[in-house]
Amino acid sequence: MIQNKTNPIVLASNNPGKIKEIQALLPDYSIIPQSEFVQTEAEETGLTFVENALLKARHAAQHRHLPVIADDSGLAVDALGGAPGIYSARYAGSGASDKDNNDKLLLELAGVPFEERTARFICVIVMLEHAADPVPLIAQGIWEGKILLHPQGANGFGYDPLFWVLGQDCSSAELSPEVKNELSHRGKALRQLVSLLLEKS
């Protein structure tokens, strides 16, 4: 965890990969994972990334009187009509592992040539000052790429081993953390959020 205790913000996530990325992208803030005070995660009943991010943020904000940031992100594959979309983390079912989700994605894309496997990672990040905040800050990032025929690389998490990064000649799971944070949907959304925070201050 970041040791700087100024500017504390709760992160509404228990995903260690996501926590690590966000800590690296927000070095001026002290990130407090919600797992330190609540073990349950919000039920993602929204129909959009924005709705789910707000549900997560409000859930965490009810347990801690600090600003909260939450993200909802996923993979949209054109050949699958935008799936898995908001269901990316549970594409292969509730409690599915990253490998389960990746295996299902490859199965659904069986027979689709690489040229037609265009896809994008989407990330929406919201920030609430408190659970009843009527004016949340909302930022969004999009990362274009393609879906590989088989996994490559051991870094990252989620669909990173299958996501071919345009212009880098490798998968997201083969990028260094620094390069990934510069290019990724989450990195773009967080930089936009920081800009919104600066405008607000």
Rank of each mutant, 00 (worst) to 15 (best):
F49H: 02
R120M: 13
H59N: 12
D98A: 06
H150V: 15
V10N: 00
Q192S: 12
S184K: 04
K200T: 01
E108V: 13
G81N: 10
Y159W: 09
L190F: 05
V135A: 15
E36I: 12
L109R: 01
T40V: 04
H59S: 08
S195W: 01
S172V: 09
A53C: 03
Q3W: 07
W164L: 12
D160L: 05
S35R: 07
D100N: 01
L193D: 03
L162M: 03
G111V: 06
L107T: 09
I19P: 05
F114N: 04
T40I: 03
F114I: 12
L198D: 09
G153M: 09
E178M: 14
I9C: 09
P33A: 14
L107C: 10
E115K: 14
R58E: 04
S195I: 05
N52P: 02
Q3K: 13
I122T: 11
Q39F: 12
A60N: 03
D133L: 10
K5N: 15
L11S: 07
R64E: 13
E116T: 13
W143N: 02
L109G: 09
E51P: 02
I31K: 04
T40S: 10
L196N: 09
A92C: 11
Y87G: 10
R120D: 06
D103R: 06
A173R: 08
C170V: 02
L193N: 06
N7Q: 07
M1W: 09
K20F: 15
L54Q: 07
V135W: 05
Q192D: 10
V179W: 02
E199P: 00
A131P: 08
P16T: 11
V179D: 01
P151M: 03
N7W: 05
Q62W: 10
L11T: 14
V112T: 12
A173T: 01
A60W: 05
Y29V: 09
R186G: 03
L190R: 09
S94G: 11
E182T: 08
E41G: 01
D72G: 01
L106H: 00
R64I: 09
T40C: 03
E178D: 14
V112L: 06
D133C: 13
D28Y: 00
A24M: 15
K5P: 12
V165A: 11
N155Y: 14
G46W: 00
E129K: 13
V38S: 08
L25D: 05
